[in-house]
Amino acid sequence: MSLKRKDLLGIQDMSVEEITLVLETAESFKEVSGRDIKKVPTLRGKTVVNLFFEPSTRTRTSFELAAKRLSADVINFAVSASSVSKGETLLDTARNIEAMQADFIVLRHPMAGAPNILAKLLRASIVNAGDGGHEHPTQALLDLYTLREKKREFKGLRLAIVGDIAHSRVARSNIYALTKLGAEVRVIGPPTMMPLEVERLGVKVFYDLDEGLRGVDVIMMLRLQLERQGIALFPSIREYSRLYCLTPERVKLAAPDALVMHPGPINRGVEIAPEVADSVSSVILDQVTNGVAVRMAVLYLLSGGK
């Protein structure tokens, strides 16, 4: 069984069966990552190009490790050093990469929908590694994997996603995924960071953190995108932190065995207190470990979908 698709562009159009297939396949790859020899010959001779138009360390490294553990060859296309700064369009860049017989292009781009355009025009499999404020499907899949590992069931699981919901592709992909799987999703953040009519995605909106956290099984924190704070969404970081920082006292409002997640990189003391980030309920580093296994699963499953 394969994902019957060439590309992974978003969670929105994935079925529950497809999501489950990725998660189950990732279990085998987690075992591979736990070995002394962390490499299998599965994608020998295939080429994966990481094409990143936005800075990223974690996601790029994770994809790179995933590809290398499958024996694929990996090229990292660093945008600042590339011909993009000489005026080349995205499509021309991608066509040049494809002309070098790339089998996968892992794309991160500031514009929503950029991977969809490449997917339509290229033969290579396109994996969306984050497109603007749209989707970040592999992040959602690794979050799901981590949740499944710790909580077993999605049905009836109560989750709160906290932070800048409007600008977060992580939030969007997770909302699509978790509502499909039957979880109860709350979104918490200041009104200026709440997308219009977000309720239509099937979530409950809270503007007060303490109220929203009550009784939840999982707290998913989002990074406050400090680099975006030229846009005045709240008066000061201090005020944001006072109202929306996840402190140990606030964690106590959630269910006793609640998990704390964060896609990283974390801003200690801004959206999450250091004591919480380092506490036993935090699964932030599990998320990173699982990310490699999930991305291996995605590359493996897409390589059969042509």
Binding site: M1, S2, T25, E27, S28, F29, E31, V32, V40, P41, T42, A297, Y300, L301, S303, G304, G305
Partner: peptide, 23 residues
């Protein structure tokens, strides 16, 4: 032992075989 990842016909098949765990 699951041998899926070591098969020599992965490129030739239409569909990826279901991967199970090596334990």
């Amino acid at each position: 032992l699951d041998i899926t990842l070591y098969r020599d016909d992965l490129n030739a098949r239409k569909e990826q075989p279901v991967l199970r765990k090596t334990e």
